[in-house]
């Protein structure tokens, strides 16, 4: 039997190898490909949109390489789809980063910068990027939460956050403001945290993704 195909969309941004290695670890029956090839992405059983760095550069590459159309096609096809970090922010209506950047508008949410005036435990301004392990509280049931407790810590590294939209927010986190740590609808979901770097809980979430048929 041929292996299931999982593609990680390569649009020239970020470290895709960590994501690939984690998936190879949890799903040995999957063929994991880092690719920009539209035919391979369209043929995949599961698709991941990663992303790190500045959203302006990410969106420019997403549009230049036709990833925006690809994402819409994958969404319409019912193929399970996962966005990670800036790959989640890119799915929103727009971002405040870099003076205002339009997103793919797959979700109505907006992306904001963490406020400069929030204080930490020493009454000093909170550090940005939000870097490290923070609690994610489950706000809705989802097949991706299988075997993961609400309040589990995941690894975050980001300076911008997605304002929660109650209809789509399936997990939240607090760092100064409350923000959307995980959003989803239909066959699409996305995490602000990095499941590929979140040890046992993150690997469980990636395993759940590879087990998921895209239906709720």
């Amino acid at each position: 039997m041929s292996k299931h195909l999982l593609t990680i969309i390569d649009y020239g941004m970020g470290n895709l190898h960590s994501v690939a290695k984690a998936l190879e670890h949890v799903a040995p029956n999957f063929q994991v490909e880092i690719t920009a090839d539209k035919a391979r992405i369209a043929a995949a059983d599961h698709v991941i949109l990663p992303g790190v760095g500045a959203i302006r550069d990410c969106m420019a590459e997403i549009r230049a390489q036709g990833v925006d159309t690809l994402v819409r096609d994958v969404l319409a096809s019912g193929t399970p789809f996962l966005g990670i970090c800036v790959g989640m922010q890119a799915l929103m209506h727009s971002s405040d980063e870099n003076g205002g950047v339009a997103g793919l508008n797959t979700f109505p949410g907006r992306v904001h910068c963490f406020p400069k005036d929030a204080l930490d435990v020493h009454d000093l301004p909170m550090k940005v990027p939000h870097m490290g392990w923070n609690n994610v509280y489950q706000q809705a049931e989802h097949p991706l939460w299988q075997g993961i407790e609400s309040g589990e810590r995941f690894y975050f590294v980001h300076s911008y956050y997605v304002e929660p939209q109650p209809a789509y927010t399936i997990g939240t986190c607090h760092y100064g403001p409350e923000f959307a740590a995980m959003v989803g609808r239909d066959n699409l979901f996305a995490t602000q945290f990095h499941p590929e770097k979140s040890h046992t809980a993150g690997l469980q979430l990636l395993k759940n993704f590879t087990d998921w048929n895209g239906r709720l």
Partner: peptide
């Protein structure tokens, strides 16, 4: 290491 350790 990166193939076996899934933390940053």
């Amino acid at each position: 290491i990166a193939g076996q350790v899934f933390i940053p």
